[in-house]
Nucleic acid binder design. Structure first.
Lengths: 350, 350
DNA sequence: CTGAAAGCGCTAACAG
DNA sequence: CTGTTAGCGCTTTCAG
């Protein structure tokens, strides 16, 4: 069902050598004389032989597959990270297996971990982007090679991170420097009490001695941003908004625009991630570029180190890059007064 | 490395039963007396035992993992489809493995197929969205259970499709009915000579006896749509544009808007897919909803049938749904004259 | 219902 | 360099 019925023994017979010899040419573990090697290779070709990974794993106790455990596979940051891991893994001859964990139920966590560890896995990459990811990481047996990928550092676990905190701080300061009295924040569901994006935002406000507004919560759906945008439109003190990601920012902008506000004339909005559509948006979105795929690649290489038992720091951090486009500008001096009274026209960006 | 050192034998010893008995409770393949079953279950708990999938596969020749072979994992339609397959697979106790094939090089194809079939796989789902997907499907050995997922039907292969052709035809007719003389088309990279989206567009034009403009090609990058949009802006005969997907439509719209055109006042633009951001766009995008995740789910269930050897049609089709928003409207009677003086048209009738 | 015996397809020591 | 001999951890007959 899974392979032809051909086995290494058939190959050996056909090539006129012993079984271990075939194994040796397959694995390259030991030298084989030119002649036999060729006969074996021919036999493999002719029989269209494919070794059974299962048998191999069983005998050698080594696997060439890694698992990615994630709370989602399809949203932008997740999908890009997974792609990065996959590309790096493929380049090193590893195959990837995916396990999704959607909640933090004990049952669900155990199911995910069992499903993963039951397979012969060389190591696991966990996307610590959300509560399920965090929970999985903490329940993983100590002895399985693992690395975490996330936006915030955590002690004691090998990991590749994208330093959101500093990036968020920089982005918020950018808005403050433009002259805004403060910056409002719409966050996406955090992975723990507070994510780096929120922390960085708060830190920048503190440093600037700016008032710290209440945080608005959005879900992962762009539409939830729309609702928050409508709410924000009602508050004339809102002149700058930092959204947890670009998709939410787009929803927020739509809510604002539908309420008759212009961007960036009346309100400045910035996102986070540099989603591929951010530059197509009207107006093009000021944001922070996050190299998710790069983090995925770095994560896989870290995992490779961990699997090889090489000790070292097992930590890799990178600083997202501010991308200034046109959705943020100086505050509108008229907004404060006029903002309270008028709200109806339906304008649409540039 | 991969599992605890605990084996089924340890469990048997601890429970005071034979090895096969443990196996029986594990697989549920045969009845075991209440008492022994409980002792075995306790032992499993206490030892935190996890069976080795590799050994299991070797002995039983049955696997609980399926492979998804795809040309990409991260773009919208791909990611959603993969998510659908994964969800359905997980619900039935299957784990998924992913193999990416980026080109149609023989080497690359063989690498992908070997990487996949070497693993103990119960079946494979191939995303036939692009040339690598098509190529893989045709090189897959006959005896491995496989289903294809795509937008266009193909004989002889079990598959789940989203009927793009009819949807594209409907969408194009919608534009024609609005009063447009013809509809221009920007296509995304096709999986073969022509995709259903293009065929449906052409068919609608033929039926309406409308001129058939030259097709414009875009890549998968939204930015390439931007360039096409700029070109289209130079041709005053362009009043309606049907783009191969929403992301390209967004790029095209941006190119048009940057060239001073208004949407839908000067040009109507429609996309395809109903990307989550399509409704956030300004103006909200008229498009066609494609249930990629649903196709993924249907595909997995088809695969399940194929794996069980149940014969039947092994084919599942669904019709995407037209979503009318506001990026398309009646043609602007002024556009033709005012535009005519500017520049020469770029497109030619067919 | 249950245990004994025999492999699944491969790699890992050994001798030579 | 190469063949022989043992398993890897599980499921599968097959007796009872």
């Amino acid at each position: 069902m899974t392979n032809k019925a051909t086995t290494i023994a058939d190959v050996a017979a056909r090539a006129g050598v012993s079984v271990p010899t075939v194994s040796r040419v397959l694995t390259g573990a030991a030298r084989v004389s030119q002649g036999k090697r060729e006969r074996v290779e021919n036999a493999i070709q002719e029989l269209n032989f494919r070794p059974s990974a299962a048998a191999r794993v069983l005998a050698s106790r080594k696997s060439q597959v890694i698992a990615i455990i994630a709370g989602d596979t399809s949203r932008y940051g997740y999908a890009e990270t997974i792609r990065g891991v996959e590309v790096a893994a493929r380049a090193e001859g590893y195959t990837v297996m995916i396990t999704v964990v959607e909640s933090t139920d004990e049952e669900e966590l155990d199911r995910a971990i069992s499903a993963t560890l039951t397979q012969a896995i060389a190591g696991v990459v966990v996307l610590k982007f959300d509560p399920p990811g965090v929970a999985v990481l903490h329940r993983l047996p100590e002895d399985v090679p693992a690395v975490a990928l996330s936006g915030i550092r955590e002690v004691g676990v090998p990991q590749a991170v994208l330093d959101e905190t500093r990036a968020a701080e920089e982005l918020t300061s950018f808005l403050l420097d433009l002259g805004h009295v403060t910056v409002h924040h719409v966050r996406v569901p955090p992975s723990r009490r507070e994510d780096g994006r929120t922390t960085g935002w708060r830190r920048a406000l503190r440093k600037a001695d700016a008032p710290i507004p209440t945080v608005h919560d959005a879900t992962w759906e762009p539409r939830s941003g729309l609702e928050v945008g409508r709410e924000l439109a009602l508050d004339p003190s809102v002149t700058a908004v930092f959204c947890g990601n670009d998709e939410i920012a787009m929803g927020v902008m739509r809510g604002l625009v539908e309420s008759g506000l212009r961007i960036p004339d009346d309100v400045s909005v910035v996102g986070f991630d540099n989603h591929p559509l951010a530059e197509m948006w009207s107006p093009p979105l000021t944001t922070v570029e996050q190299d998710f795929a790069g983090m995925g690649r770095r994560g896989f290489h870290l995992l490779l180190d961990v699997m090889n038992g090489s000790d070292g720091k097992h930590y890799s951090s990178e600083r997202p890059r501010l991308i200034v486009r046109s959705s943020a500008d100086k505050p509108n001096p008229l907004r404060q007064t006029s903002g309270g009274t008028d709200r109806r026209p339906l304008s649409e960006g540039a």
